[in-house]
Design a protein around this nucleic acid. Sequence first.
DNA 1: ACGAGTTATAACATAAGTGTTATAGTTTCC
DNA 2: GGAAACTATAACACTTATGTTATAACTCGT
Lengths: 107, 107
Amino acid sequence: MNTHRQYINEQIRKEPKFAEALAKAEQEVGIAVELARLRERRGLSQTELAKLTGMKQPQIARLESGAHFPAFPTLQKLLGVLGGKLELTADACHLVPTRLKVASARR
Amino acid sequence: MNTHRQYINEQIRKEPKFAEALAKAEQEVGIAVELARLRERRGLSQTELAKLTGMKQPQIARLESGAHFPAFPTLQKLLGVLGGKLELTADACHLVPTRLKVASARR
DNA sequence: ACGAGTTATAACATAAGTGTTATAGTTTCC
DNA sequence: GGAAACTATAACACTTATGTTATAACTCGT
């Protein structure tokens, strides 16, 4: 059942740019998933989070889909409500839950 | 010599959006300054860093000018050469020096 | 003074991310 | 079953960041 991994490894060998694009995509999706988890952890729906951040639900959905990296100001709006700290290095990107400062989310 | 601070506080009172924009600008400049420091700490010129990151010198200069927030992929390229870890929360944004993984910068 | 290296900036084209409305599919609850 | 809530997606307009070449100003060493 390693067909998928074999395919990926072959692409990486054939096409060096592939590895780079793959890493980028993994990180985009990684952040998206972490954002969604953090939201759920706070017991908010996308619509509620949208209201709290001054965004609209489709934007939240897009951010959670991993379509692209969020920009800093966007992330900060989200972190303002959800709490959390982003840690970015050359190879990794993680959203670490932190304590909430105020009762921004559901009590 | 508090004229500047007084002016800022007055603007904040008159114009709530001003505080937000100010905070954003401070953070943009903050990252820029931290990037420049990290580069200098590694003993690289902008042109050298540009070569190592696959960018061009004017882009490095722009990033160091604080004209805008860097995007994630851009930052990761830079961190790949300079080392360092970015920490982003709702209110703050810092670039923390870390150990270099390989002799990417000047020995 | 001059050349080489360094940095800053303008201007342009392009890519990427935001913001929005509309809508459809899905899930939950009564 | 139906309504309400939730989520996903398309499409469009707009904003923001990248990438680049050209060039000017600045700094340093000889």
